[in-house]
Nucleic acid binder design. Structure first.
Lengths: 150, 150
DNA sequence: TTGAATGCAAAGGATTTGCAAGCCC
DNA sequence: GGGCTTGCAAATCCTTTGCATTCAA
């Protein structure tokens, strides 16, 4: 955790950004909840627990910055607000989204690497990251009659 | 094209929605531009060419409906508005997105089916569709110095 | 010290909503 | 004819911006 914060501090410095106390607080919340993704509002509320004076605009401005620096990335789930989470290098981390109850199942998988390599070669594309969303019905909802779509 | 429109008409009827002239116009534009994805504004402008009296809210309301019925789906590209396009059954259709120039390269691939099948089994998830976005640098931008991130 | 970063509040802009009028089935 | 749809315009709400103040380096 100290490691990660130091690493992000470095990256900010290298790109001529300062590690303000607000940035430190935002990163701390993200680091302490690596497995979670936050809406801006939720993140704002968490950071306020550490620093009650932080402004919402600061959260927006810094998430934008962190995404630009590849410290965080944005997740978009249809019919919902944007969410953000830390990028972790060795994490192949994707989502199964239930079209009925909107449940989000997270999973990790290494098998896409091969596929990705071939793709990078075929399209001469320098691959940095990928986001994959699978839509369908979770096991709770597979027999439900609520689903539209007859 | 008649086929597709009739099919969508059926699906609307089966779910107790009417095929209004506005819905027909919207679907017609989408069908005639299957390979394109539209922002709401762009779609609005196209539909106005057919029916100048259509309202913007109608476009929003119907795209929401069409997505709910799995006639269209929403594409989200970071730092941009939402886009929409028709869903075509047999299309495995994904995007490579350049992080420098924002170029979007579309590609089709069948290789993910196997992966997807395993996943569906592992998580007892009834898979309907998947969207995959790869981020990186296109060949024009690979040697550019503009990229941040030192 | 000094330009970058923040907080606040106001502005912006995409999307949604209320309601009377219109239209599909 | 009846109720779903539409058009219009106003409202909503997430996000951005301007500006004076504060702060990291």
């Amino acid at each position: 955790m100290q490691n990660l914060l130091a690493e992000y501090h470095d990256k900010l410095s290298r790109n001529n950004y300062k590690l303000t106390s607000q940035r430190k607080d935002i990163l701390t919340v993200l680091i302490n909840n690596k497995e979670q993704h936050f809406s801006v509002e939720d993140l704002y509320n968490e950071v306020k627990k550490i620093n009650p004076n932080v402004g919402l605009a600061t959260i927006y401005r810094n998430l934008e910055l962190f995404c630009r620096l590849n410290i965080t990335h944005m997740l978009e789930f249809e019919s919902d607000y944007k969410h953000y989470e830390l990028i972790s290098e060795d994490d192949h981390h994707h989502h199964l989204i239930c079209m009925n109850c909107d449940k989000i199942i997270e999973f990790n998988d290494e098998d896409l690497i091969e596929f990705e390599d071939r793709l990078a070669k075929d399209y001469d594309f320098d691959m940095v990251k990928h986001y994959i969303k699978f839509y369908g019905y979770c096991n709770d909802c597979q027999n439900s009659d609520d689903k539209e779509l007859k």
